[in-house]
Simulated assay, not measured.
Amino acid sequence: MKDRSYVQLTYMTGILPIAKYSSGSELNMFWEYTMASEAKYNEYFGFTDSEVDQLYEKHTRNTREIHISREDLKEWYDGYTTKSGERMYNPRSVVLALTNNNIGNYWTSSGPYDEIFYYIRQNIDDVQNDLALMISGEAVTAKIQEYAAVSMNLTTKNEIFSAMIVYGFLSYENGEVRIPNKELMNKFDDMIHKASKLKAQKYNKKKWRYVQKQLKKSKKILYSNAATQKSINSAKSDLKKSINKLRRK
């Protein structure tokens, strides 16, 4: 594209950041806009609240028997945060939920999921402990690093979390990562339970089963309509204690 007189502007879009080359004559001079690092164009990374309102209103007008509520859409598919602080919904999941008139998990268990699951299964840098906390509703401190399609070997939690943000598995705000919504809570819950059954799990089985028990308890309380802030805090505290015991294995 360089030195081509007929090229005035090139626009490329996709889920992964583009790998830049260091050579002066290669592909290295372009602007990159991501949801976590740049505020410009943030409104185009997903559906805003008002856009989902419009879609749901259209759904109620054109659907005879409505099986999903507006609150369902927010609980299941909202939770991403842009650089400017605006909340975003997963557009694909919202569209499929309204099309099918059914709330469910519409994440595809292939591609990025397989890559991320590898690091969770191997428990690189004790990443399972932090994911267990996030499943209980906690945010975890993280330093986001550059991640591109050529990043093949992730060795730290910050690298793994950076990849998860790019793929849409985590939301990032004010130096912390969290699981954005119920759709992904369920996905990570499945990952953790699946990983714990594999031989790669290096923890003491008895202690890890106790962590899972506390995790299940925390998740149940978190999504209970009758839950109080006191019961939520108590469940999170029990989970943290069990994870700390695990780290001292």
Rank of each mutant, 00 (worst) to 15 (best):
24 G>L: 09
37 S>F: 06
65 E>D: 14
62 N>R: 13
45 F>S: 11
45 F>C: 07
35 M>E: 05
30 F>Y: 14
56 Y>W: 05
46 G>N: 04
43 E>C: 01
49 D>I: 10
47 F>N: 07
50 S>A: 12
29 M>S: 15
54 Q>A: 11
54 Q>L: 12
38 E>P: 03
48 T>C: 03
35 M>L: 15
56 Y>R: 02
49 D>V: 08
45 F>N: 05
68 I>Q: 00
55 L>A: 03
28 N>Q: 11
42 N>W: 00
51 E>W: 02
52 V>K: 01
69 S>L: 00
31 W>S: 12
54 Q>M: 09
41 Y>W: 09
65 E>G: 01
35 M>I: 11
37 S>D: 12
70 R>S: 06
70 R>P: 04
37 S>I: 01
23 S>R: 14
44 Y>I: 02
42 N>Y: 04
62 N>Q: 12
59 H>Y: 13
25 S>F: 15
45 F>L: 02
25 S>K: 15
64 R>L: 10
44 Y>T: 07
35 M>A: 09
40 K>H: 06
45 F>G: 05
38 E>M: 03
40 K>P: 01
63 T>W: 03
40 K>Q: 09
30 F>E: 06
46 G>Y: 01
47 F>V: 01
41 Y>I: 00
66 I>M: 03
47 F>S: 00
28 N>I: 06
29 M>E: 15
47 F>R: 08
48 T>I: 05
44 Y>K: 05
21 Y>L: 15
49 D>K: 14
43 E>T: 15
48 T>K: 10
28 N>L: 07
48 T>M: 11
59 H>D: 04
65 E>A: 09
56 Y>V: 05
53 D>E: 09
61 R>A: 11
41 Y>D: 02
42 N>C: 04
52 V>I: 00
66 I>Y: 02
25 S>Q: 14
64 R>A: 10
39 A>T: 08
62 N>H: 03
52 V>Y: 03
44 Y>G: 01
62 N>E: 14
70 R>F: 10
63 T>P: 10
54 Q>W: 00
50 S>R: 12
67 H>Q: 12
22 S>M: 14
26 E>T: 07
41 Y>F: 14
30 F>R: 03
66 I>A: 03
28 N>R: 15
67 H>Y: 07
46 G>E: 03
41 Y>G: 03
46 G>R: 02
47 F>M: 10
49 D>Q: 12
50 S>N: 13
66 I>D: 00
56 Y>T: 04
38 E>N: 09
33 Y>H: 08
47 F>I: 00
51 E>K: 05
53 D>R: 01
25 S>Y: 15
42 N>K: 01
36 A>M: 11
68 I>F: 05
39 A>S: 15
47 F>D: 04
31 W>A: 12
